[in-house]
Nucleic acid binder design. Sequence first.
DNA 1: GTCTATAGTCGGATAGAC
DNA 2: GTCTATCCGACTATAGAC
Lengths: 218, 218
Amino acid sequence: MTSVQRDGSGATALDEPAETGKRLSSDERRRQILVAALAVFGTRGYEGATTDEVARAAGVSQPYVVRLFGSKENLFLATIEDALTRLLAAFRAALAAEEDDGLTAAKRIGQAYVDLIEVRGLHQTLAHAYLLGSNPVIGAAARRGFAAVWRFFREEMGIDADEARAFMAEGMLISTMIGLRIVDDYGSDPQITELFRSCFPSELPHVLDVLPRGDERW
Amino acid sequence: MTSVQRDGSGATALDEPAETGKRLSSDERRRQILVAALAVFGTRGYEGATTDEVARAAGVSQPYVVRLFGSKENLFLATIEDALTRLLAAFRAALAAEEDDGLTAAKRIGQAYVDLIEVRGLHQTLAHAYLLGSNPVIGAAARRGFAAVWRFFREEMGIDADEARAFMAEGMLISTMIGLRIVDDYGSDPQITELFRSCFPSELPHVLDVLPRGDERW
DNA sequence: GTCTATAGTCGGATAGAC
DNA sequence: GTCTATCCGACTATAGAC
């Protein structure tokens, strides 16, 4: 965010055409790759994902992904940091939104969380990160992120610890169900259908629309 | 669980000493390996774990682990199935327990969930499995397991969909915090301390005792 | 029932050209 | 800024002996 528009035409010694549609500023590429990484890490997890898969999803070569981020681990760190930034930004926007629709702040924030499903892989990637607590570097970053969300609820939103915990809990359940792809059994298994409906009371149709389904590649 | 005591001394053509402390019935080995696998998959996840790590944790050779379970994937499937069986068994025991302590069934079951922390890696492994929904074989198994837990709440315990959802949600939060190793920051970060306390109101001391900490190898 | 040796594959990272 | 070629370590799985 707040992209630093360095280069694009500047101190570079080369006179390459910048409008090929191929050569972008490394800042833009970084953003493209982060989008791809979010999706890939979301489906595969940190260890399961390959830098090559991310690269292909972003339309660049595998070594270039590594080159830009230094390592797969750094790429993952950048990815979850980005995800967290978006998450908190969405929460803040929801908190600040006018109440023209008569919804409470809590409802609006909950809604914002569900809406983030549209950002492919965001919830899943964060959930994966949260399970990596034993990894010295990723774990530490994940804990910081988790704590930041908690802080948002307590300090910015101003709810008490019990309410904050309930909020987080609902969030974890939603993330889990997305990662589980419970949608895949929606409709076929009455039990699952009920569970799913219980999680997304009002926004069901939209959610069903947006969620990736089983036909997608693993 | 109702171990099938096949062999141990039977149709085998060999006259090996069975009490070397080394050579066990494959049934016992399987169980040992499942215990090790639960711990390893719990910290590393499915892709992050190696069959070699599991083997060393169980005190056998890597090829033997593969030999006994056929493949890493099968080992993982067997591991989560075992975990689910234990989980539901604990829930059923809690549900059936006398109310001599004046606790409601809900409290007893919640307690049982927290107590399962003592089974190393159980919560973390299940949580990992739940995030693998996109994997055709593991995802399907994970969904079945998740649905089985839901069914327990709705049919055996008899609570309604909203209560069941709240239960699941709390459970997912607890699992997440264990996987995050939020304990590692307990005491040092006031925010985290509060969050942690909020999740384990009464059983805090015990939980702090049982949870693996940061010093453990990744 | 269990091991050692090893084949085979995959994937992250590096070198270096354009 | 981006690619191709490639090295090398890691890891699953197989072969086959004891």
